[in-house]
Design a binder for these strands. Structure first.
Lengths: 109, 109
DNA sequence: CATCTATTTAGTCAATCATCGAAATAGTTC
DNA sequence: GAACTATTTCGATGATTGACTAAATAGATG
């Protein structure tokens, strides 16, 4: 779980996943979309692979990466559901809810 | 977006959010649930606050933290939707899909 | 087989992170 | 106002991260 969120914390890696959403792509093709070196991209692929978010297929000297969409969805939706289920409605439980005017350190400061 | 995923990448911080899902709690009360020092917990609260995932209310010397559920939901579901929408069904598009037996480096290795 | 291409590994560096103990801040209480 | 409580800020430390260049691996092609 930590691995997945850590993988998603980097904009380059999120963009890689977005690119792979459309179709599998080779390491070189993916790297062409970013202004960083190949070794750096390779490290990003490793992080994504260790989070089980992508699969790889080696054909000759070329490696094709593929998004594991179900892993991503299961993780995100599963975690989101953990919070949606059993949570009170935002409008109710006014007594326990902190009112915006009372916030001393938050978006206001 | 990166801030939110980075905040979620730490198990302690995820657990804090889970605790706050039930009701607002003070810094000390939250800290009591974890085997780390108060300064460390304070740092975690700062990360969560910077990700806009919690609000804080200071009453006297006590600070109460509250989950910003809508921020969390909007981020997670919004990102998940980005991948669900427009994605092809896993069962179709067999030609572009890498078959499990072909995987050279992934879950198999 | 020498060379070219695709990608990774190795080694390094600066920046960030999680953690701690000590000290500071701020409110409460006697 | 001295002492106590709640929490943060400060300063230090070891681990991890994202980046790079250089070198290694491995397959393809002349």
């Amino acid at each position: 779980m930590s691995d997945i969120f850590r993988a998603l914390a980097d904009p380059t890696r999120r963009k890689v996943l977005e690119l792979l959403r459309q179709r599998p792509m080779t390491a070189g093709e993916l790297a062409g979309h970013f202004p960083v070196s190949r070794p750096t991209m390779s490290a990003h692929f490793t992080v994504l692979r260790e989070a089980d978010l992508i699969d790889s297929l080696k054909i000759g000297t070329t490696i094709t990466y593929q998004l594991k969409l179900s892993v991503l969805e299961d993780a995100l939706l599963g975690f989101a559901r953990l919070f949606a289920a059993g949570a009170r409605e935002p409008a109710t439980d006014a007594a326990e809810r902190i009112k915006p005017e009372q916030i001393s350190r938050g978006a206001a400061e």
